[in-house]
Computed example of a mutant assay.
Amino acid sequence: MIKKIPIAIVTMLISLSGCAKDYSLAPPADSEKVTVTVKLPKELKTETMWVMYRSATCKRISYGASGQRTERDGHNSVYKEFERQGRSDIYQVELPKDGGGACQWHLANVTFGVAYADPARFGENIIPGGGGGVVVIFDHNNSPRGGADFKVDGDLTIQKDYYPWVDEEFLGPYRKTVSLTGEGKIYLSYQALQARRVHFEPVLHLDFVVYSAGPKIKRKGNHTIFTYPGGSVVADGRAKPDFIKLQAIRLAAENNK
């Protein structure tokens, strides 16, 4: 039996299929390039870069429950691996700013970061956690992770301190993770409209590890316990380590050498 299809759905299908356009990227040979480099500590590795291009020509059309039509810029994602430059500690990705093609794609944003190359050095059955992430926005749109925390003119250089954070969680499935904890959120987000070079240098202070253990019983007043380098223990309701405290501990230790 052939089922009847509502006229509204037929109309929508026709409107979507009637535009046979090539949505692929086709960067012109003379496209201006954006170069992203990471100066990588030997204990870390680069993660795959997520690159997003946008198009005002090829719209994304959606329909609400009442049939209202919404148009948004189209987007196209590609994924890039950083390439080591010779035998140095510099890893690089080069991206065309103009994505070309029938949709006239332009580079919108990139998401990348670093993680531990060998999490097992921090114990058995430990898995990588978060931290060490960067988002750079090259246009006036938000990234998939939201808007920018910082806005910069010209090229972008990021140098940030990070500490190893080993965390155990007991409520729900047990898990033990090692993360990079630093200043701010897991992903630091920048808008750099004119940037043609982005340089990220994570500075890893491997000798200053902070440990935490979540509560084993869900009860009011039970908080995650943080044990900082040097042995101080704090359970003040924080969800992540106190970055200022870590900085102070490290600087005091370095001054006492």
Rank of each mutant, 00 (worst) to 15 (best):
S31W: 04
T177R: 14
K151M: 12
K80R: 15
D155A: 12
E81P: 00
V134G: 01
P241W: 09
T11E: 14
V210C: 04
L251T: 14
T227V: 11
Y23K: 15
I127K: 12
K218C: 02
H140T: 12
P6G: 05
Y23I: 11
E83T: 15
E168H: 14
I90T: 15
I249K: 10
K97Y: 06
R72G: 03
N109R: 02
K39W: 01
R69K: 14
E32K: 14
S179D: 08
G172R: 08
Y116E: 01
A253C: 05
R87W: 01
L246Q: 07
D98V: 03
Y163D: 00
M12N: 05
S66H: 10
I225R: 12
P229D: 09
F200W: 07
K176V: 05
G113A: 08
E47P: 00
F208N: 11
V152A: 13
G182Q: 08
I217D: 11
K4I: 15
G214C: 04
G231S: 07
T157F: 04
K4Q: 12
D236Q: 04
F82H: 12
G86W: 09
G101S: 10
L25S: 08
G132N: 07
F112R: 03
P173H: 10
V152E: 13
K4Y: 10
N125Y: 10
T111E: 13
G86F: 11
I2H: 09
L13W: 08
S88N: 13
P215M: 04
P6H: 11
Q68Y: 05
L193G: 06
K39F: 03
S55F: 01
